[in-house]
Design a protein around this nucleic acid. Sequence first.
DNA 1: ATAGGGTTAG
Length: 491
Amino acid sequence: MSSHQAKRFKYHLNQCYQSKNLNLTKSLHAYILKTSHFLSTSLTLTTSLILSYSLSFDHHHHNTTISTTHFNILTNLFKSIDTSNPFPFNTIVSHLSHHGHPSLALHTLSFMHSNGVVLDSYAFCSSLTAAAAIRSVGFGKMMHAHIEKLGWLSSVYVGSALIDLYVKTSAMNDARSVFDEMPVRNVVCVNALFSGFVEGRMWEDGLNLVRRMRGLGMECDRFTMCGLLRVCAGLAKIELGRQVHGSLIRRVEDFGGDVFLRTSLIDMYGRCGVVEKARHVFDHARIGGGGEGKRDVVLWTSMLGVCGRNGHFEDVIELFKEMLMEGTKPDKIVFLAVISACSYTGNVSQGLQYFESMVGDFGLNPDQEHYSCVVDLLCRAGELERALDLISSMPFKTGTVDNSTRNGGTNNTSLWGALLNACVDSGNVELGKLAAERALEADPQNVGIYVLWSNLCASVGMWDEIEKLRDLIRERGLMKDVGCSWLEVVS
DNA sequence: ATAGGGTTAG
């Protein structure tokens, strides 16, 4: 086989890779084997084959497990690669973890480990990213042990990736201790830890970390600033927020072209109640900064959210229209923002219209979160029966997990919780009991539900029921959390 | 031929 031929094969494999065509990959593989023995000597061709296979497998198996047949194909291909050189393996792990196939990346790492391929910082970084993507604490802990044994904890790259993994699995204490024990630190690992504090709404911890940066001889970059704006929003620190805005203008080159920063800035001003300023930042978003006049969906969503939370309902309607006119297609999150805006401002019929338009005009299937939103909308307007009807008509089973959401799945506690909340207000015990039962089926540890239910019981003098609830709470070991709210209810 | 951190809703 000539190198020209090899190039052609590589080109075709790339096509398989792009189109995720398993059968095409299989026949190309067979053809290559029949044509010559070139495959066993061509690393790049083997690598391409592995990637094409991996992508087609996951296409069929939704990224969780692969069949033994497929696993064997991969393993055999792995075995034809010289294990004394980690380079090609690292390339494979990197590709897989960056193209949405984390579990296969981890399979590859396992193969490397059990076949004596040297595990270097590149291998660990890629697989830590993969483990973070599927939120695998177990795999992470295992890798952490290996990393420590091999001395890779001293690498800022590996350290940052490890911190990120712990952050994404909500193990903030582990993240913190990795950070504290790092011999060398830079902005990236600070940002990794900081983003964990921000995501977990641990505003003060985040702020303290940023304050420590000066002492460590580090400057904030745009990632840090972005988090800092969210801290300002969380603590409603408008003055600090203005300072961050000022230093963005002074210090960050073309910050206006950065959607992340603009979005956080709009959100910050909005949560601090300075709607005009948020609008000002939003209105100038199309100018400069590489944008060709069309604004990002996320940018629109943040502005819609700002108007909704501040009760500017007319602006929400207007903005949504403008967004469509500008040619920006709404996504599911835009509708969450818009429908909850209707909910805040008590515009039930418009909220329902948007909900219907979402499916009818834009072909977007509502998630459980959308249903929660509409249930909340109906309940706030006192339409409890309609809310119950809507829940019964949902295409989901109650008590199941919805994996389509960003945080990897929320159950439908919020759905029943919204209904229960409304029942407390209206004193509807019968429906409230049903809602409380369903909510606790989905999440038996949810203290808020116990409190709501006992509030409802107390309001109508059902003291026996409260007594039963109290036993249940003690049984499930939730007494400590419930604390003062419980005492308030009983006394 | 290879590596680490960020935005919107609730």
